[in-house]
Design a protein around this nucleic acid. Sequence first.
RNA 1: GGGGGUGUAGCUCAGUCCGGUUAGAGCGCCGGCCUGUCACGCCGGAGGCCGCGGGUUCGAGUCCCGUCACUCCCGCCA
Length: 597
Amino acid sequence: MHPYRTHTCGELRPAHAGREVRLSGWAHRKRDHGNLVFLDLRDHYGLTQCVIDTASPLFAEVEKVSPESVVTVTGTVVARSAETVNATLATGQVELQISAFNIESAADMLPMQVAGDAEYSEDLRLRYRFLDLRRDRLHANIVLRNQVIASIRRRMIEQGFMEFQTPILTASSPEGARDYLVPSRIHPGKFYALPQAPQQFKQLLMISGFDRYFQIAPCFRDEDARADRSPGEFYQLDLEMSYVTQDDVFAAVEPVLHGVFVEFAKGAPVTPTPFPRIPLAESMLRYGSDKPDLRNPILISDVTEAFRGSNFGLFARVVEKGAVVRAIPAPKAATRPRSFYDKLNDWAKAEGMGGLGYAVFADNEVRGPIAKNLEPARLEAIRTASGVAAGDAVFFVCAPKAEAAKFAGAVRTRLGQELELIEANVFKFCWVTDFPMYERDPDTGKIEFSHNPFSMPQGGLEALTSKDPPDILAFQYDIVCNGVELSSGAIRNHRPDIMYKAFEIAGYSAADVEARFGGMLSAFKFGAPPHGGSAPGIDRIVMLLAGEPNIREVVAFPMNQQAEDLLMGAPAPVDPARLRDVHIRVEMPKAKEPRGS
RNA sequence: GGGGGUGUAGCUCAGUCCGGUUAGAGCGCCGGCCUGUCACGCCGGAGGCCGCGGGUUCGAGUCCCGUCACUCCCGCCA
């Protein structure tokens, strides 16, 4: 007999009755009846009830085994009597009569219980991640992650994509997030950087003639964490294709994401392909966000003209100075008490808005402080624009365009939640397209790349030379699901002449471009196919499919918000000799104690 | 870098608003009883720098100041 197991803890069925078997696993839970003990043995595959009574000399040993000890149990499979079958357990029709018992590894008193669904602080869970990973929820999430990645890989290969590995130690990229730096021992004062994404490598692979690239790629960015953003590192389904238009990329990505979501959504509806395409400008107007949550039925509209020159002086004056007014409908909110509106007003102030005006479209009248100051024609214009019916209310945001869009989006989200309008258990996808190539820094007035500097401007060189930079759009797109940005991508700029011009507009000389992207640029000068791609975030996909609100729930060993690994103790000070090896001298910030480890 | 929330037993939390006897509960742990449970049940017990430091007060878990940790958000994330 195998020293550890003949079967797994999820395997035994009535057909095994009478067989002598051996199981190994963790002592999940014990029910001690004094002269009879039930021991639930757990492994990756399931749970099996083992039983022993005082007739056995092993009884005392089994009775005192501590939870989460690893044990090997040998015995006879016994069919349970009808009254004692546990229908909630896959192995619940049988149990194991213990005839031999060996403790492989005894467990101390636990800082957190594995059995049961008690909640623990994230601090504790990260410190004892190996215990947390044994628990149902996290264990299932990591299994799901594995299945999602396997499915993605299969779907990509079926579509003719080749999987690559690209360097982890690479060069710092001048645009984008802060890099993680790795000092060079051989080259004093020089550093490698961990890749923020394999962006340049995948483009080089296209130029190298491989046609269709993908990678489940680790990406490293030294930026602060969020609930949906891992500190330090995360994974992307990075992909790139040659000789493609934007539509070709969409047509390649959609079936993969749609297929994976249908496969793992447990019956929840998934937007059919092709996914809706929403230009960024429309997204900002109608949804108040560059990542619209289409589960929320509320649509924002512009009602600036209804307030221009009106008796509602507060808005009229600001509109004269160039502000816009956005209307956010609140379906069936007319019967809500005054407190509903006051509460939202207080919330708006706390969010940094001046307040939140509103009008209530009741059956025969329009009520509210703003409505009193507007003529019927103006109210009718608002009603038409916002599409409200009798019984609805409308909220108003008045501010400079960008700010108004953002606040209106926050109001839309808040109303969707308050009025319980957000559709549950559904995955709603869309593409957000036509991102601008540049934006003007509001403080300095300087023109900067708004997203990826390697994107192809719509209209090519001609657009760059003839248009006002903020008006130039790029073949740049995001994919959004339920208000979560899953990926961004672009058709790349493969033309050196266009690239020099694009960088020139953002204030980089030809020499700058050559110094920073010399490798890429030389590649473009020796025959580069038109190409483009995208990079959906793996962690976010799994997070959505697992129904988790936090990305750390789908990562086996995440760092905490301070980018520390509490289990391994990273980051940590290193021996001075090792610092000398890499020519580093540490200068501590003043008046701040270093974080201990 | 900034703002909000949290910090009390191994763990999850109550008590803090409005200062006053020996700081409680559930789970876990230890001991006892229990032969059909599956979140087993019953009885008993141990376990506390009330995050840390300072202050106010006759008296601080509770009020004030500072600080640290965790978390959520803003900045940041081409």
